[in-house]
Each structure stands twice: as structure tokens, then as C-alpha cells.
Design a protein around this nucleic acid. Structure first.
Lengths: 338, 338
DNA sequence: GGTTGTGCCGGGAACGATTGCACAATAATT
DNA sequence: AATTATTGTGCAATCGTTCCCGGCACAACC
């Protein structure tokens, strides 16, 4: 039904062969100026665009990259996507975004779909459910370039780009301590996620540095990263029902941070008098929120840019790359305490 | 570098022709059960997937649809996208999302790119800059199915799916009146956007119904829909510098609503004592915000679903469709007043 | 025994674009 | 005038898949 113009159409209209038309459009020196002009003018007139599908088939690359992330409704990921697009479009690549909503099954289907769809490379932030990355290893082994960002895995030898999660977590926890908190809880995603491990480390280090005892009961995991609000609610209620309630909490992710604020508001917990909250969050409306959240902010846009740059370099590299980089970007702490 | 298996690979390995292999995989009756089993088993073993690029070229359709919207960081659009994906994936279509960031130039480039990329159809919500839709008309005339959602145009005869903007705006404004507001301002996007017109109408009708005079000076337009916070800031400051300051404001879009809250907070305007705010907003963290916003909520997920369903029906229709529908979904008002 | 039928399979064209190679016509050289 | 460059153009193969067409073998029929 919708039939774009082809080289053949131009050739027929002008009484030339398709090869001549093709060469004229690509401005080869071996076509006479008159023919070139003729072709170019006509192509302009009918607004001819080469069929990228045909090109993909011929060139065996699609000039597009695939992205797998948990969800764009998450501001952090929305910002990453903007960073990705800013680089990709400049270098002539399309971006195809897929959402996992934190489900492993969804992630696997999406990524295999992308791969068979001939994306030239993949930008991946793992879902909180993912433990088995063998399907990714498979693709990677067969030569598909992959760059991980945010939630990474060491099971696949490739570039990684992450925030300095340990330092960010350390600073946030130290901030809570500076506010006089003695019993600091930690709310985090599933324990196998790279960001969870790193942020937990930062939390532990801050406690240790300031001589606070680590209480495992203060650490709560949400297997689905807070995709279900009940998860978050239950974790916090458990904390608030403890004999020795925490007086501060460090939350490990965007979604959990927002979810925690909701619960504390529901419970009418006085923030920051009864509870000081700090957490990773890239939302740009945190200033409007009460209860108040001291936030660790990741350079999301920049992460997207760097990840994309790395991926495109892998894709366009003439030789197999074996020397991989783990890039770590600094976070920044935004203190909000009234 | 990354070379998936092809029919030819299977054919060679099994000593058959590609046509036989193709037919075996498609389960044609004219292939013997033994051969079929042979081929299927082998295909299974090497995890063969047909090359969608080649299929697209042959079938002249890509089983993918394109989406153009302002930005996924906007919760409303993020929810729409989820609705779109929920339907598209079920029916075997890919979704390619492009962001305009409210720029006409970006929109045009993105959409033409999508079209030449052989998407089978388009879901479009126009950018606030867009007045000239001729490039879309062009594509539509040549047979590309298009469905508009949210920001629509009557210049192209096709399906439209929108919220009941007039009614939503009416209810919001009436709510402000019920709170005792006498001087109600209206902050909106560019004046040629369909949603702006419709929401302005609702605002006017509510004023009229309750005998309030329409004051044009109380209506402020933001040409870029609040993409630049300065726009929003200036508009509100102008309002607050008037001799007869407004005591209520109805804000016409998600982004502007958030932007307005930021400005009122900066200006330390007491909400709702000095100023009652109501606005379109699908953010799911409005309960956490102060100042407080009474919000008109659109059924975003459902809109995405319906739009996609309509589009896929257009795409898969055997006959040209001339009977187009304008679907209008009800909004809901969430009152927040403390 | 020749014709028709049927089951099974291979050859080759097509989709749209690029490109190495061949070939014609003209120009330049000997 | 004959040979060699040079210039401009067309042919055909290629990418992976589908599908029409045709062919071979064997059985059934008159």
C-alpha cells in the first residue's frame, strides 16, 4: 500500500539504468555532470530516499542499536536515553528502546528480538531479576558488540560504564551519620544486582569508618526493585516495627527512593525529625517533595553518551577489541534537610 | 562479524536446497515428514531465526510501528508508551520510539526517518512547535497508516484518540471556582496545539457558567510547552506582578504543571491560601508534592492501547479505510487541597 | 503401455541498493 | 588510419527469504 520510490522508478522515468542512477546519487566521478544533475533534480523532486532495509540486507548492518533497560518512566533511564540518542543520531544510528519492567523473561525476549532484528550492537542495563546471562554471552560470543551500563555483569568481557556507586553510597550514609543518625537502615534491590552490591559496600564502609555496628536486620532487599509498591511498603513497615527503629535510611535506587517517600508519608513518619532519608534518585522534582529526600544523583545523560560512544566504537572497529574499559563516573550529593 | 545462521547454512549442512528448507520450516504439506523433522531439529539445534531484514525487504513490511512524542521523561508519555507496547508486542509488532523534545525540525527528521525505515505505521502526538503538517500529509497520502493521539490535527483524515480535554479543563476550573477563586489564570502551551484549544475552551466554559469574566491577560502561552523553565517562570511572574493577582490557576499540561509548582515554590507563594493550582498531570508522585496540585489525570495507558489497536487494524486492513473515528476518553480529577 | 496424478524436491526470480566488470563511443595518441 | 586511453553507461551478482514453475520418480488408471 505505502510504496516509496525506488532506484528503478527513477531509472525508468529517466531512461537510465539503476546502476547509473545509484552512482549519480552517490556522486561518483564516472558519471557525467549532466546525467548527475538530471538524476539529482528528479530524486529531489520526488523526495527519493534509499530503502534502508535493502541497504541493511546488503551491508549486513542496520545502522541501529538496541537498548534494554527497566523502564523509561524512571527518570534516571529517561535521562540515559537522551544521552544515548544525542550521540547515536549524530553518528547516524537509530535507537530502539526496549523495557524489561524488571522481568528476566521480558529482557530475554526483547534482546533476542533485537539481535535477530540485526541491531549492530546492544546497550544493556540488566533487570533486577536477571541472574542467568548465558543468552547474552551467546550473542556476545558470536560477535555482537555489547556495552553494559548501570547494572553490569562481569560474566561478559566488554566495556562497562557505571556511576561510582560505592562512593555515592558512602557519602549518602556519611551524610546520615552527620545528621546524628545512629541506627541507619538500608533499603535495596535484589542482592545479585551489581549496583546493589556496590551500594551496599559504600554503606558498610561509611558505618565502619564512623564506628557504627552493622545490623543485618536493618538491610532490606526488594527482589523486584520496587516495581511492586507492596514490596517497599512491607520492607519499611518491618523496619518501623522493630524494637529499635532506625532513625535514618539509605535507599539504593530511584524507584525505591520514591516508593519509600510514599510509605513514610502514609505512615506519617516525621522527616527528618524521626527519620532522615537519603537515596539514589535522579528525579528532577525532588525539590518539590515532602517528605524530603537527600539524593545521590548520577550523571545519567553523560552515562548514556559515553556508553553509546563506546558501543559505536566497538561496532565500527576494524579489528576485534580485547581491551575493555570499566568507566566510573562520579555522583553528586544533593542535601535536602528541612 | 556477527553472522547469524541462514537458510543456506542449513541447506548446505543437510544437503538440501534453500527452498526445501524454507518450506520445511514453514510446515508446507509438500515436504515429507522425515525431511521436515530433519530440518526442524537442525534449525532448533543451531537456534536459527529468519532474518527479519530480508523478510521486510521481501514482504515490504517491517512488522514495526513508529512513535513520535515529545519526551518519555514526561510521565504521561511514558504511560502511553507502556500501553502501546502492551498491544504491539501481543500482535507481533516492534515499537520504535522517537522524541521531538517539542521541536518541529526534530519531529520531521524523526518521522521521515521512520517512514523510510519502513515502519508499517505511525503513532503521532505533535510537537508544540508544529504547525506545518504537510510532510505528514504527504506520507499519509502515499498510504502510510497514521493514528494521532493526544495532540492531533484535523488536516489529516485519520483516527484520533484524545482525552476529553474540554471536560477535564472544565472540571478543573470549576473546582478552582468551588474553592472560592475569583480571578483564575490559565497557563498553557502554544496556541495552535489541539490540546491547548480544547482545554482553553473548557476553561472558558467553566468561567462562563459561573458568571466569571474572561480576562485575556490571565491567559499565558508557553510556545515550547515549558521545555524551557524560563518560559514558565516568566509567565507566572508576570501573573504575580499584576495589580489584580490571580488567586487560582489552571495549568494545561504535565510539564507546565510541574514547572508551575517549581516557580510557586521559589516565589514562596502560599498554596492553596494565596493560590489554588489545578492542572493536567499524570505524574504518579503528585501526592508527595508541595505545593499541592489538584490534577486532571488522563487514561494514558489506555490511550496508548487504543491508539495502537486502531493503527494495527489500519495496517492489517485488506481494504482502504475511509471511515475514521475520533475516540474521546474521560479524564479524572484528583483533588488535593491541603 | 501410455497417460494422468501425486508426492517431493530443486532451480531461479524477485524484493532494492551497491559495485566490479564489460563494453560502447569518443578523444587522444602514434 | 590504426591503436590506445578515457569517459559514460549497462549487466549481473550479492545480501536472505519466499514462491512460482518445472522435473523426477512412482503408482494408478484406461
Amino acid at each position: 500500500m505505502f510504496e516509496p520510490f525506488t532506484l528503478k522508478d527513477i531509472a525508468k522515468a529517466l531512461g537510465l539504468s539503476t546502476s547509473t542512477v545509484s552512482r549519480a546519487l552517490r556522486d561518483t566521478h564516472e558519471i557525467s555532470p549532466e546525467t548527475k544533475k538530471l538524476v539529482l533534480d528528479y530524486a529531489q523532486k520526488i523526495n527519493y530516499r534509499p530503502n534502508p532495509i535493502a541497504l541493511s540486507l546488503k551491508e549486513r548492518r542496520s545502522k541501529s542499536i538496541g537498548v534494554s533497560l527497566s523502564e523509561v518512566a524512571n527518570q534516571y533511564f529517561a535521562q540515559v536515553v537522551n544521552g544515548i540518542e544525542s550521540i547515536a543520531y549524530d553518528r547516524g544510528y537509530h535507537v530502539i528502546i526496549t523495557q524489561t519492567h524488571e522481568f528476566y523473561a521480558r529482557e530475554k525476549v526483547n534482546i533476542q528480538h533485537l539481535a535477530s532484528r540485526s541491531v549492530d550492537g546492544l546497550l544493556v542495563s540488566l533487570s533486577s531479576e536477571t541472574t542467568d546471562t548465558s543468552y547474552l554471552q551467546n550473542l556476545h560470543q558470536r560477535g555482537l558488540p555489547i556495552v553494559f551500563f548501570d547494572r553490569v555483569t562481569d560474566q561478559i568481557k566488554t566495556h562497562q560504564i557505571i556511576a561510582n556507586n560505592e562512593k555515592g553510597a558512602f557519602e549518602a550514609t556519611e551524610y546520615l551519620i552527620s545528621q546524628g543518625c545512629k541506627r541507619i537502615a538500608h533499603l535495596t534491590s535484589s542482592d545479585h544486582l551489581s549496583i546493589s552490591v556496590e551500594r551496599l559496600n559504600g554503606y558498610k564502609q561509611a558505618l565502619a569508618k564512623h564506628g557504627l555496628l552493622l545490623n543485618e536486620a536493618y538491610i532490606k532487599y526488594c527482589a523486584h526493585g520496587g516495581m511492586f509498591q507492596e514490596e517497599t511498603e512491607m520492607a519499611i513497615k518491618e523496619l518501623m516495627n522493630m524494637k529499635e527503629k532506625p532513625d535514618g535510611i539509605f535507599v539504593a535506587s530511584d524507584r525505591l527512593s520514591i516508593g519509600a517517600l510514599v510509605v513514610f508519608k502514609e505512615l506519617k513518619v516525621k522527616v527528618p525529625q524521626e527519620m532522615v532519608i537519603a537515596g539514589f534518585c535522579n528525579s528532577d522534582v525532588l525539590n518539590l517533595m515532602c517528605p524530603t529526600l537527600t539524593s545521590v544523583r548520577q550523571p545519567a545523560f553523560e552515562m548514556g553518551q559515553i556508553a553509546t560512544d563506546m558501543l559505536l566504537n566497538l561496532i565500527e572497529s576494524k579489528y576485534p577489541v580485547h581491551d575493555f574499559e570499566k568507566k566510573i563516573l562520579d555522583t553528586s550529593l544533593s542535601i535536602r534537610n528541612h
